[in-house]
Nucleic acid binder design. Structure first.
Lengths: 323, 323
DNA sequence: ACCAAGCGTGATCATTTGTTCATCGCGCGC
DNA sequence: GCGCGCGATGAACAAATGATCACGCTTGGT
C-alpha cells in the first residue's frame, strides 16, 4: 500500500463519513474534498463494495424473527436466519432466494472472519450455487490467517460451482489461503475411493478441515431436478434406488430420509467428502434457498448435526408450518 | 405495541432489508410490499431515524486514526475518536464541529447502552452545547434500565443546554430514567452550597452517579468567550483572578492550569457538581468541539482523569502537534 | 349527528444520485 | 520516438429519491 493508495483510502473514508454520518449531499462533499461530484459518487460506491461502510439491520422486530425462533428451537440450532422474500409472498424466483441467502451467509462469514484475528482460522466449504452466491456477496475483509477448505471433491463439469472456484474467490477476497481436495467428487469404485483418500495431500486437507471453526454447506434435493442428477452424477437408476430407500435429500455426499436417518448405499461409499464425524468441533451452517429444497432441508436438520441455518422466507414458512 | 404497530415495524424492517441488503429500488420495493413508493421512502427513513438500520464506517484506514493513536498514547486514554472536518482543512464552523463530535459521541453512548441489557446502567452527564448535540444525535434504543444522571447543578438561563433537558431527552429516547440535581450550579456562598449538598435528594443523586458506568463531560475555556462568563456566572473579576492563577479550562466546575493542575478558588468552592473522586469507577469521556477549546482540553487531559476523548479533526491536529 | 383537528396518503415537482460515454493522460512495449 | 492500450476523469443524461402540498379518512368532541 503506497502513499497514493493511502490517501485514496483516506478519501474514501472521509467521503463515506461525510455522506453517511454527516449526511451531506455528494455535491457538498465534492466541494469540501475539492473533487468532482462523480468522483465522490465513486468514492462512496468504493466504500460500500470494499466493506469500509457496513449497513446492519436489526431484524429482531420483524415477524420473521418469530419464525426463526421457532425453527431454532425445533431443530436445536445456535442460530437461524430467515431472509425476507423479495416478491410479496408470491412464489419467489429461486435465483433471488439464493441471492438473499447468499448475502446473509456472507455477513455471517464476515463476522466470523473479523472476530478473532490472532488464531488460526479454518472455514470449511461445500459447493453449489448458494455457496457460490455467498462467495460473491462477501465484502472484502483482511484475514490473512484464514484458510478456506473444500469439504468435497471436485466436479469435472459446471466450473462455476466448483469447490475450487469458491475457495479461490474467498481466499482472494480475504488475502487468505485456499485449499481444495484434488480428487473427483465421485470415484468409480469403492476401491478407487480408498486410493484417493489415502493420498497424503488428501489427508492433509482432511486434517485441516477437522480444525474448521465453521463449515458452510448446502442441501441437495434427491430428485430429477437436483444438481447431482442433472449433471449425470446420479443416474435414473441410482435415483430410483435411493428414493426406494426413502432418501429425500443429501449434503456432503450423504443421503438422508425424511426422518433424518442416514441412507446407506453403494453410491455414498464412492463419494469423496469429509466425514461428518470429523466436523464435530465445527459450527455447521446450512444454506437452503428455494422451496424445492424444503423437504431435503427438513431431513438434514432432523439428522441433528446442523448448528446454524440460513433460509429464505417462503421455505422457512413451509418448514415452520409442519413443525 | 399492538397488532398495527407490529406489522408496521415489520414493514419497516422488510423495506430496509430490501433497500440496503438486497439493493432494490424504492419502486421495486413498493410493488413487492404493495404500497406506494412514497410510503416506502418513509419506511426507509423511519428505519434510519429509529435506529433499525445502523451504518458503520471502519475508519481505521483513515489518516486520522494515526493521530487518534498518538493522542491516545500521550494522554493514556482507552480510546480517542477524531471526527473528520467538514470543510476541507479550512477553518471549520464550531457548530459543525459540535454536530460531528455529538454524532460520534452518540454512537459511543448507544454502544454502551446496547452492550449489557441486564445490569443496572448509569450514565453521568454534564451539560453544554456539545453534550446537547450528542443527545439530539442519539438514535433511539430500548434501554429501560438506563439512568441518566446530571453531574452538575442547573442553570437558570439558557434552557437549551440545561442539564435537565439533556437527561430528559436521553431518557425519552431510551425509555430510561432521568435524574438531575435540583439545585443551582453556583450557590451564593460556601455555606449555602453545604446546605444544598446535604439535601437528601442531592445525596441520592450523588450516590447514583457514583455507580455510573460512563460519564460524558465537556470542556469550558476560561476566557471571555466561555459559556460561564457569557451567561454571567463568571464576572470579569473572577475571570481575571482565575487567569492570574493560571487557569485555562474548566470542567465539572473545576478549573485547571495548562499543566493540568487543579486551580483552587473561592468560586470553585461554591459550585455544585459531583466530586471527581466519586467518579473513579467510571469511564470519563470528554467531548471537545472547536479550536477555541484546544488549550482547555489539553489542560484537562493532562489532569489525568479522562479515559476517552472525542474531538474534531482540526483541534486534534493542534493537540497532537504540540505533544 | 356533525364538525373540526390531525394524521396518513399519494400526486407532483425539485433535487440528488448513478450510469454511460467520450476524452484525456500516462506508461509500456515495439 | 511513436503508437497503443489501459485506467482515470468529468460532462451529460436518465433514474431514483426526497420534499411539498392538497386531499380524504379517521377520531374525538360537542
Amino acid at each position: 500500500m503506497n502513499e497514493r493508495d493511502l490517501s485514496e483510502t483516506d478519501m474514501v473514508v472521509r467521503a463515506a463519513w461525510l455522506y453517511y454520518v454527516a449526511e451531506k449531499t455528494q455535491n457538498e462533499i465534492a466541494s469540501i474534498l475539492g473533487v468532482s461530484r462523480v468522483k465522490v459518487a465513486r468514492l462512496i460506491a468504493d466504500a460500500r463494495t470494499s466493506g469500509i461502510v457496513t449497513i446492519d439491520i436489526d431484524h429482531r422486530l420483524s415477524a420473521l424473527s418469530e419464525l426463526e425462533e421457532r425453527i431454532r428451537n425445533r431443530f436445536n440450532l445456535k442460530f437461524c436466519y430467515v431472509t425476507p422474500e423479495s416478491e410479496g409472498g408470491d412464489k419467489e424466483d429461486d435465483a433471488v432466494a439464493r441471492h438473499g441467502v447468499g448475502m446473509v451467509a456472507a455477513r455471517i462469514l464476515r463476522s466470523i472472519l473479523t472476530q478473532e484475528q490472532s488464531k488460526e482460522m479454518v472455514i470449511g466449504l461445500a459447493w453449489g450455487r448458494t455457496i457460490s452466491a455467498m462467495a460473491d456477496a462477501l465484502l472484502p475483509v483482511n484475514a490473512p490467517q484464514a484458510q478456506f477448505v473444500s469439504l468435497l471433491g471436485s466436479l469435472t463439469r459446471s466450473a462455476s460451482a466448483n469447490p475450487f472456484d469458491v475457495v479461490q474467490k474467498l481466499a482472494s477476497k480475504t488475502d487468505g489461503q485456499a485449499k481444495y481436495l484434488p480428487v473427483p467428487f465421485i470415484a468409480d469404485s469403492e476401491e478407487d475411493r480408498e486410493v484417493f483418500i489415502q493420498q497424503r495431500v488428501v489427508q492433509d486437507i482432511i486434517r485441516t478441515a477437522m480444525r474448521a471453526q465453521a463449515c458452510f454447506i448446502s442441501v441437495g434435493e434427491c430428485d430429477a431436478g437436483s444438481f447431482l442428477s442433472r449433471f449425470g452424477y446420479l443416474s435414473k437408476e441410482d435415483l430410483a434406488f435411493l428414493n426406494s430407500l426413502g432418501a429425500v435429500g443429501d449434503t456432503l455426499g450423504l443421503f438422508f430420509d425424511e426422518n433424518g436417518n442416514y441412507v446407506d448405499s453403494q453410491l455414498c461409499r464412492r463419494t469423496l467428502a469429509i466425514n461428518l464425524s470429523d466436523l464435530s468441533q465445527s459450527d455447521i451452517i446450512l444454506l437452503s434457498a428455494g422451496t424445492a429444497k424444503v423437504n431435503a432441508t427438513r431431513a438434514i436438520l432432523k439428522a441433528g448435526f446442523i448448528t446454524g441455518l440460513v433460509i429464505n422466507a417462503e421455505s422457512a414458512r413451509l418448514l415452520g408450518a409442519l413443525v
